[in-house]
């Protein structure tokens, strides 16, 4: 009698434990599955965010190039129109090449602290990524050929950027962005929005190695 009860009890206990185990597994999987792997979703979201920006830039490029080409087509048989078109392109290229001074709205970024060259390179890269017309560091205009060399500047680093000031301010100061990264490293960063600023031209180096 005693033996019978014990065996029956163990069987019931085993069955109950099995059900309990299954219930726990079901509950655990229901908690985990909807979230998926957070890192996958986050990676995809970051990739999409960047792709949206890239595609917007590309669309702007297409629009600009189409307009530019159309202007040249329209001016093919008109010397005056052609001159105006050439002047317009020349004006933009001289600003891009930093051979002419520029004024306009933008931001002034003041860095104080122990700034590393790599950090300055990253900051200038981030500014270019957001988009701007011209950059200068401590009054020295950056051209395509200008390296970022800390020996050329002294602290505080005053970076002037001509561009969309609201976009530059918000993009630079976004959470987890370049400014926050610098502040984490004990660098004092101050972004000042400017309605009108003036950046002088830079001196182009002599180009001796380009054949064409």
């Amino acid at each position: 009698m005693n033996y019978f009860i014990r065996k029956k009890d163990w069987l019931i206990l085993g069955f109950a434990a099995l059900i309990l185990g299954l219930a726990m597994a079901m509950h655990y999987s229901s908690l985990v599955r909807p979230n998926g792997t957070p890192s996958d979703d986050q990676t995809l979201a970051v990739e999409i965010e960047k792709m949206v920006k890239v595609n917007t830039d590309l669309k702007n490029q297409v629009s600009l190039m189409s307009k530019n080409n159309q202007n040249y087509k329209d001016s093919l048989n008109d010397q005056n129109l052609l001159d105006a078109q050439i002047q317009s392109e020349l004006r933009d290229l001289k600003i891009i090449n930093a051979v002419s001074a520029i004024n306009g709205s933008g931001v002034e970024i003041v860095l104080k602290g122990r700034v590393l060259e790599a950090q300055l390179i990253d900051l200038i890269n981030a500014i270019k990524n957001i988009g701007c017309d011209a950059i200068s560091i401590n009054g020295q205009r950056l051209s395509l050929f200008s390296p970022i060399d800390l020996n050329r500047y002294s602290e505080p680093y005053n970076i002037e950027v001509v561009g969309n000031n609201s976009l530059l301010t918000s993009a630079l100061s976004r959470k987890g962005g370049i400014v926050e990264q610098l502040q984490i490293r004990s660098i004092d960063v101050n972004i000042l929005s400017r309605e009108n600023m003036e950046l002088s031209a830079s001196v182009l180096p002599q180009l001796n190695y380009l054949d064409n």
């Binding site: 052609l82 050439i86 290229l93 001289k94 051979v99 395509l144 182009l204 180009l207 054949d211 064409n212």
Partner: peptide
Amino acid sequence: EIKSKNFINVEMSELEWQRKLAGLSDVSG
């Protein structure tokens, strides 16, 4: 086409140079 129509003037050659500086032409060296 603009070059072939003899529309080349000082601005055009300056434009060519600025384009080269900006990276808008193939280069070698």
